[in-house]
Design a binder for these strands. Structure first.
Length: 817
DNA sequence: ATATACACGGATCCCCTATTTCC
DNA sequence: GGAAATAGGGGATCCGTGTA
């Protein structure tokens, strides 16, 4: 049997003591295929230098006798080969030890404590990763495969009987073929329940949305019945129908939003109560829940994806949304929002409102479906680039992205993979403390005209590549013809012989450049996603090297990268100043210059000259020209504030960084006022209006004319309530919520306002009230702690003392500017 | 536990000293 | 009169959220 095949998911099973992989996917006719295969299973034993040939032979004989008995199976050594390999960039002689079961490699490694063996590696990758590296059947690539169709009970104990696929094939041959379009079958779902606590209330309804498929399953009958609503008898039937429809639709991806943490655990809990088997996987198994801090719920074949987790890791840092609620995220990426519906306990929902609830529930699944379509190119590209299946890459963090890429690309360098750090190493690394980071130039507060902004293109990345920085390229002692850098942890030397990490990064960097250009020439979601995936990967390597949990961790390399970052930025600033320009500000990789009377051409000429002196692939770029820029003092008023500025672009767009107006832990009133003030000053140059506007707001606060919703302060609970050492206002708000039985877990966003209270306490936390709580807002607090701090420093730039603004003792005139 | 460091700024914590209160 | 309680100042620390 010969067919075209694209893998979407992998799992594995044991048969007669050996590991077999199961690859789920589709053929060119969109039929469901399961491919069964196995691969050589082995680990590496790196030999000490200078072990003689006869000695090696002896060791091999010894190792061959190793037998491991675990969990009722016996794993034996199949064969041993001697190879010349590289480990951390150095040539080594290593034994490739083949065994029958991947899970037992760890145990075998424990039996290899021979004096001639230096290190044991390559047994901790996970069998699926190992298989993909070994056989190169990568997720979401097309293959022409040949194999025997498995039928009947003889093969693997009747596996084909259980699997709900069109065809089950034992792989014999495979060949990667030219990429072609693949559109996965998607089914999104969302549940509505009577309690937010997992399993505590009944599931009221479940919506399902796929291509040409819309359904809301419910046991609650309403007045008006839309076509998509299907009534069932009770919760048990609701669950059964959900499973039935899902299996019938047979999607590649079953997609939810926060469904690892809510929908699927809830379904599991209710299924248990109702004695229903939640067999959503193609092998008839139930979702597997892992115990980690963030719960995951994995299914096989019909792959469960929690879209929230992917969006959070990949786009979190770049998102405008202040929360990860489906509503905000959908608004940002789709321009669509949830249907308005006030969630209540089912007993309190009026008869006439149920059909609205159904519509609301359906629309949530529609949003999730559309979001998945939007992010599918990203999932596809990340999966292809890191060679890990979607079920993994939608759940891992940035360090794992990088690590997967490295592990899957080691072969080109003949490298043996480094192992994960042990618990001891982890605590040791964590105790090393921080390395000195980037340099930030203190600005002189003021309003400036005509500004040019320079920045280094992918600064950390280009430094790693240009200076050949990484753990394996670090030299133990100084050598001639090496790069060296003075850091806070001493002077470090790096070989000039290109290391595999800088080389890999160079490839990523060049691909990123190429795909970015491709995207600009031919903008479509795929080229955009590809460009973005390489951008994320490229930007994460530096963090990965400095991350204590990584396989290729190096504090020395991390310190050196940052030392170079400081050096290049400071040197460039000095050179610019030498040319007679004033440098207004600089942060890490950026430099803001006052243009004075220079033309744009002259600035570009300066840039060209600066670039001619930069090493390797390093490049300084023109970020843009700006008409005006505003820098303020810190609250103490003694120094210029870093990481806080506003720029007016030539396109009249205002770019605000760091100011309270961009921070979600300030009340909307203060944020909007500050935004308005900055806009008036920067855009129209209208200080008078800005001042008047501020005064108006102050008056309104005093007269209690401000709507409470403008005064709500939001803050995230970053850990369990009990772990807080300092009981701050938002912790009190969280405690209040808990008292009201509103489920509150860490990670939740807490809202509150500061109210006037009778008590004498000066602590703000004693004035905290929840938004629903009755009370009058505290005029003094909002004036002194929200409004004034947001605008004071800005007016101060113009020499205006705002101290008297609140009590209005002194009438301010424009003359004071 | 799940990429890094720098930075701001609010609020509380904590220690010290001065003042007030209580017996 | 003397001990204990309280107030207030100020630096240290905690905490969340930004920038890069």
């Amino acid at each position: 049997m010969k067919l075209e095949f694209i893998p979407t998911d992998y799992d594995y099973f044991d048969f007669e003591g050996r590991n077999y992989i199961r690859i789920y996917g589709r053929d060119e006719k969109e039929k469901r295929i399961c491919v069964i295969d196995t691969c050589p299973i082995y680990l590496w034993a790196i030999l000490k230098k200078g072990v003689s040939e006869p000695k090696i032979k002896k060791i091999i004989e010894k190792i061959k006798k190793i037998k491991v008995n675990i969990a009722g199976r016996t794993t034996t050594i199949e064969k041993i080969e001697v190879h010349n390999k590289n480990f951390l960039g150095k040539e080594v002689k290593a034994l490739k030890i083949f065994a029958t079961n991947y899970k037992d490699l760890h145990e075998i490694a424990d039996h290899l404590g021979l004096p001639e063996i230096e290190k044991r590696r390559g047994y901790d990758l996970g069998f699926i990763t190992h298989y993909i590296i070994e056989k190169k059947i990568k997720p979401l690539h097309w293959y022409e495969i040949e194999g025997e169709v498995i039928t009947g009970i003889e093969n693997f104990g009747g596996i084909s009987e259980i699997l709900d696929v069109n065809l089950c094939i034992k792989l014999e041959k495979h060949k990667e073929i030219q990429d072609k379009y693949f559109s996965p079958k998607i089914l999104s779902y969302d549940i509505e329940t009577d309690s937010i606590k997992i399993g505590e209330g009944e599931i009221l309804m479940i919506s399902l949305v796929g291509k040409n498929f819309k359904k809301v399953l419910t046991w609650k009958k309403a007045n008006k019945k839309e076509d998509y609503v299907e009534y069932v008898k009770d919760e048990k039937e609701l669950l059964e129908k959900f499973i039935k429809y899902t299996r019938e639709f047979s999607p590649d991806f079953l997609v939810g939003y926060f469904s690892d943490g809510f929908d699927l655990p809830y379904l599991k809990a209710r299924a248990q109560i109702n004695k229903v088997k939640l067999n959503l996987s193609l092998d008839d198994s139930q979702p597997i829940f892992s115990r980690g801090v963030i719960q995951t719920a994995k299914t096989r074949g019909i792959t469960h994806i929690d879209l929230l987790r992917f969006i959070r890791t990949v786009y979190g840092q770049y998102m405008q949304s202040e929360t990860y609620s489906l509503n905000e995220v959908a608004k940002e990426f789709l321009g669509d929002t949830k249907k308005a519906f006030e969630l209540k306990h089912s007993s309190k929902i009026l008869e006439k409102d149920w059909d609205k609830y159904f519509e609301y529930n359906l629309h949530d699944s529609v949003l999730v479906y559309n979001l998945f379509e939007k992010f599918w190119p990203d999932i596809l590209e990340f999966s292809r680039i890191t060679r890990e299946p979607p079920t993994e890459i939608t759940r891992i963090g940035l360090s794992k992205f990088t690590e997967s890429y490295i592990l899957h690309n080691l072969e080109k360098f003949n490298e043996i993979p480094e192992k994960k750090p042990t618990t001891d190493q982890l605590s040791e690394r964590r105790h090393l403390g921080h390395v000195e980071g980037a340099f930030v130039l203190e600005p002189t507060p003021g309003l400036y005209e005509k500004i040019a902004m320079f920045d280094f293109t992918s600064m950390h990345t280009s430094i790693i590549i240009s200076m050949n920085l990484s753990g394996p390229t670090l030299l133990e002692k100084p050598e001639k013809n090496s790069n060296s850098i003075e850091t806070s942890r001493g002077k470090f030397y790096f070989t000039k012989k290109p290391g595999f990490i800088p080389l890999m990064l160079k490839e990523i960097f060049e691909k990123r450049k190429r795909f970015k250009a491709e995207y600009k020439k031919n903008p479509d979601p795929i080229t955009k996603a590809r460009s973005n995936a390489f951008k994320v990967l490229s930007a994460s390597i530096h963090g990965y090297i400095g991350f204590f949990g990584s396989r290729y961790y190096s504090k020395e390399a991390s310190a050196s990268i940052l030392a170079y970052v400081r050096k290049f930025n400071m040197d460039t600033i000095k050179k610019i100043e030498k040319k007679g320009y004033k440098v207004l500000y600089g942060d890490t990789d950026s430099i803001a210059i006052k243009m004075n009377n220079s033309s744009k051409e002259q600035i570009k000429e300066l840039l060209k000259e600066l670039n001619s002196n930069l090493p390797g692939i390093m490049e300084l770029e023109l970020e843009g020209f700006f008409e005006r820029g505003l820098w303020v003092t810190t609250r103490s008023g003694k120094t210029g504030a870093k990481k806080k500025y506003a720029l007016l672009g030539e396109d009249q767009k205002i770019k605000i960084r760091g100011f309270e107006t961009v921070r979600r832990d300030w009340c909307p009133l203060a944020r909007e006022l500050q935004n308005k003030v900055i806009n008036l000053i920067l855009g129209d140059g209208d200080k008078k209006r800005a001042l008047e506007y501020a005064k108006e707001i102050i008056k309104k606060i005093k007269n209690r004319e401000i709507n409470k919703s403008s005064l709500i302060i939001r803050s995230q609970l970053k850990k369990p309530i009990s772990e807080y050492k300092a009981i701050s206002p938002h912790v009190i708000a969280a405690k209040k919520m808990r008292e009201l039985k509103i489920p509150i877990e860490h990670g939740a966003l807490v809202s509150y306002y500061v109210a006037e209270t009778k008590g004498k306490s000066k602590l703000i936390r004693d004035k905290v009230k929840l938004p629903e709580e009755k009370g009058e807002y505290d005029i003094k607090y909002y004036l002194e702690h929200q409004i004034m701090p947001a605008i004071e420093n800005i007016f101060q730039v113009f020499g205006l003392n705002t101290k008297e603004m609140i009590d209005g003792k002194k009438q301010m005139t424009l003359g004071e500017f």
